[in-house]
């Protein structure tokens, strides 16, 4: 399989702290890859370097073999990478469909046009995208009044507007009700299958991670400690140690009980 997105030795220092330490991985075409790890493991830092919000101290990011390290977020986006945010970032003064239309206008390079009415541009395409995430019926609502789960779905529609090769989703289900979480990830998985998009996502909800991801990577203290299928990760002792502790505290107790 060919890698759509690849990192080589990605490292980021904040002063003396090494937030991300020599992370190398590949995201394959059509893959749903999860990046998990405890709080403070460096997941968001990693994400921000992929998307251009942060410049890596060392290392490279490659998209389809082309180096995109250090490009600005909007340049990375133009190369075909979409993203959704951990905390939704939406245009609160616009309607749902206009939010999506903005991304389409930008994609078609029409941001600096003064003549047409923006609200009449690419409306059909935007509605089709909203239909994909089952939001078409709410297209003309003011986006400031939407429920949080709906905002997340709208953001997904925005992220798909320029037909990205890669979709980066930072905690896509954070802040959603359990039922909605599964729904959103199922939707994402369907889109991956139908559109051939590759998705890298971070997540805290393990149900979501194990149910839909093709492959899982585990980050701890800035370094990748494990990588594999759901089953491999579940049984990996290092991962268990990171998430549940090494068991050293209670090991003696267990021993004493047996004695």
């Amino acid at each position: 399989m060919s890698a759509v997105l690849e990192t080589r030795g990605l490292t980021r220092h904040f002063g003396a702290i090494v937030a991300v330490d020599d992370v190398s991985f590949q995201l394959h075409r059509g893959e749903l890859l999860a990046l998990i790890g405890p709080n403070g493991a460096g997941k968001s830092t990693c994400f921000n370097m992929l998307m251009g919000q942060l410049k890596p101290t060392e290392g490279q990011v490659l998209l389809d073999g082309e180096e995109i390290t250090g490009l600005l977020p909007r340049q990375v986006w133009r190369k075909g990478v979409g993203r959704t945010f951990q905390i939704t970032a939406t245009y609160a003064s616009m309607t749902v469909v206009e939010n999506v239309q903005m991304a389409l206008l930008s994609h078609h390079g029409e941001i600096l046009r003064f003549l047409p009415f923006a609200t009449r541009q690419y409306r059909e395409e935007a509605l089709a995208l909203l239909d994909l995430v089952s939001m078409a019926d709410q297209a003309d609502r003011h986006c400031a009044v939407l429920a949080y789960g709906d905002l997340k779905r709208m953001e997904l529609a925005i992220a798909l507007a320029h037909d990205p090769k890669v979709l980066l989703m930072d905690e896509p289900t954070a802040g959603m009700a359990p039922k909605e979480r599964v729904g959103l990830m199922k939707l994402t998985a369907d889109i991956v299958r139908s559109k051939g998009v590759s998705v890298l996502f971070t997540e805290h909800d393990m149900d979501v991670v194990f149910a839909h991801s093709h492959r899982i990577m585990v980050l701890n203290r800035g370094a990748l400690i494990a990588e594999g299928t759901a089953e491999e990760i579940r049984t990996n002792t290092t991962v268990q140690e990171v998430y549940l502790g090494g068991g050293t505290v209670f090991a003696d107790e267990g021993g004493a009980a047996h004695a």
């Binding site: 600005l72 970032a89 939406t90 925005i158 507007a161």
Partner: peptide
């Protein structure tokens, strides 16, 4: 409204 989203969608 959201500089973050605007920059992340090519504006």
């Amino acid at each position: 409204d959201s500089e973050r989203q605007a920059e992340a969608t090519g504006i």
